[in-house]
Design a protein around this nucleic acid. Structure first.
Lengths: 235, 235
DNA sequence: TCATCTGATATTGTATACAATATTGCGTCC
DNA sequence: GGACGCAATATTGTATACAATATCAGATGA
């Protein structure tokens, strides 16, 4: 017996349905259920979530501000496809912001903060064990955001949130299958350094962790991939 | 003879009117024509700009993402009022991002970049001479954003754009009248360092420039200003 | 056979109408 | 006289209808 399909979301009965739709879409993108380039038709989404196009549009605009979707006039909204250059930029920005943030977190973390971080790691392991890499990736991102929150810099945490979101798209586009995802130990060691207040170590661990991820991406110039048809075929 | 009032904007005939309204409001906030806390009624704005509430809402949501306005459910939109803590955070973030950015700009600037920066300075002086400090402040912000653009980091430039925007609100709220605004020399020296490719100097000048602004703010704890009525009056 | 033009279609952009809810003034009750 | 409750009002939240425009298929001509 097959149930009628339902929207893939737990929280659509929230008071502000616009944010709810944005959250649902954001989660779907983070978990790689929506591939970069996917068209997000307003009517389709409105029907799926049982709301009007008005609220769908608000949600899409919200995601566009986070650069998770691309809205083009009279063309529609699409899941964003960061270019190689943008991918480089995103990771350069993360490598600038996050090590410093980890240092601050090491200075100011409380024991309940540590508990929360460890909870993230446990969930991440569970998701991997359940063969749900999308969910694991999303949780991994939340881990980074949580560290910024712990550091007590809400503004920078907001920046990191957008960088993590875009990183998810970048990973979807440029991840090298060959390289195993070996974040488990990195996150664990990081939490330990933060818990023990070892600022310098935390900063270094975060930096090398980001470099690890960065170098597990295939960011070499593609031969003709993203160029114009003319440039690729005329000659 | 008094002309009928017209919206304070030059670009309301653009194709995407939502962005146009957002730009007009953003400019008004940057130039301190709209004070923090001002209520932004949707019907009022719709009438002023001659568009429907739909597009006004889109514009307000856009500004809310930049944290220039506060939207509260069933209450309306208001020009944001950054707290003391938020003000500190914003300037800490700027002091983290912008010196590095200035260094990168010094490495990669072209002569046309320099021309553009000098143009900003000239306009800024003109605005000051015309006794239009709001416009001068806005141009000063654009100067900082331009540097980030020159550095070739669009992502970080976007962050700085939001930080500059919030800085404008912070200055409106916390600027000490006593301190003169002495940015002229700072900006000029900065451009020179960037033009000559002196990376270290550019980084240092940007850092000290930001510290100057930061310390020209009165960010001491207010006795009761932003606290709750209860806390302020009950005793 | 291919290129170009044109109109039919589908999708987005905008306006307006209706629903939901916070605010506020007034009346009543204690 | 003051506090509480209630209804009137104004404003925002959402849905829907209409307008504008990009896309695409088919026709027409060279």
């Amino acid at each position: 017996m097959s149930a009628t399909p339902r929207p893939f979301s737990n929280v659509l009965d929230r008071s502000n349905s616009g944010e709810a739709v944005a959250k649902a879409l954001s989660l779907a993108i983070h978990e790689h259920r929506l591939a970069p380039g996917t068209k997000l038709g307003e009517d389709d989404l409105a029907e799926i979530y049982g709301v009007s196009r008005t609220v769908v549009r608000a949600a899409l605009q919200s995601l566009a501000h986070l650069q998770l979707v691309d809205m083009r006039r009279h063309r529609g909204a699409f899941v964003a496809q960061p270019s190689l250059g943008e991918a480089q930029e995103v990771f350069e920005a993360r490598e600038l912001l996050e090590p410093r943030t980890a240092r601050m977190a090491a200075r100011s973390s409380t024991s309940s903060n540590i508990k929360s971080l460890q909870g993230h790691i446990v969930e991440e392991h569970a998701a991997l064990a359940a063969d749900d890499p999308g969910r694991a990736l999303n949780l991994s991102g939340l881990f980074h955001i949580e560290i910024a929150r712990i550091a007590g810099q809400a503004t920078i945490a907001g920046f990191i949130e957008t960088l993590v979101a875009r990183s998810s798209l970048i990973i979807a586009l440029y991840w090298r299958r060959e390289s195993a995802l070996c974040e488990k130990h990195a996150h664990h060691a990081l939490v330990q350094a933060i818990a023990e207040g070892q600022e310098q170590l935390a900063e270094e661990l975060m930096r090398s962790h980001l470099v690890d991820i960065h170098s597990a991406l295939d960011l070499r110039e593609r031969p003709a991939a993203a160029r114009s048809l003319k440039e690729a075929l005329m000659r």
